[in-house]
Amino acid sequence: MIVNQSDSNYTDDKTCDAVGSHTDNENKHYDIVGSRTGMWLFLYTEIMLFGGLFVLYAAYYRMYTADFTGAGKELDILMGSINTVMLLVSSFAVAASITAIQKKSRKVALAFLGFALFLGAMFLVNKYFEWGHKIDLGIFPNSPLMEDSSHGRVLFFSLYYTITALHAIHIIIGMTLLAVTMAFIMTDKVTEHKYVLLENAGLYWHLVDLIWIFIFPLFYLIY
């Protein structure tokens, strides 16, 4: 079985050599499907990471439902909605950048990625003002106000800060990945023949969007 696989790899290299119309860089052996599968496996671990926090949320929601719905009303729905829309549009832009690179229009791909990066930055700015406003109101872990609050309310805001902070870190990592991918497109290391890096960076960005799709209703919309 193993012998067969190495045989077929050998044939692959031969076929590739025979094509001969690509640069040396593109002829190096690499495994697109394996690369993408690895990224998905990593995303599963991310799902379990945030899943664990959502399990905590579910348990405490059940135990302190009234406190949770009360505290949820204190979050700014408008801010949360704007951030949701920005992440959805940025996800679209990243998906469209893959279409652009497949159609050989690298400049369009770069424009889409730049737009996604801008929206990611705006998300963080929005979050900064949101957190700042909450901290001004005295709502932060271990604040005097929190010490006088009910147990459920403290848990709600602790989870709010923990989950949104972990999510914001993921936004920063995702933006870094997108920026690196843009640099690779500019230097022709990511091309219409080989764009798995763009696909994987995109997958990460979409996962960050997916997690926000659950954070938004669970924190901002509970009533």
Partner: peptide
């Protein structure tokens, strides 16, 4: 030659 990504599925901008 699947390490040259040329036969991938392309989604149109309209669909996205």
């Amino acid at each position: 030659i699947d390490h040259i990504q040329s036969d991938a599925h392309i989604q149109s901008y309209g669909k996205l």
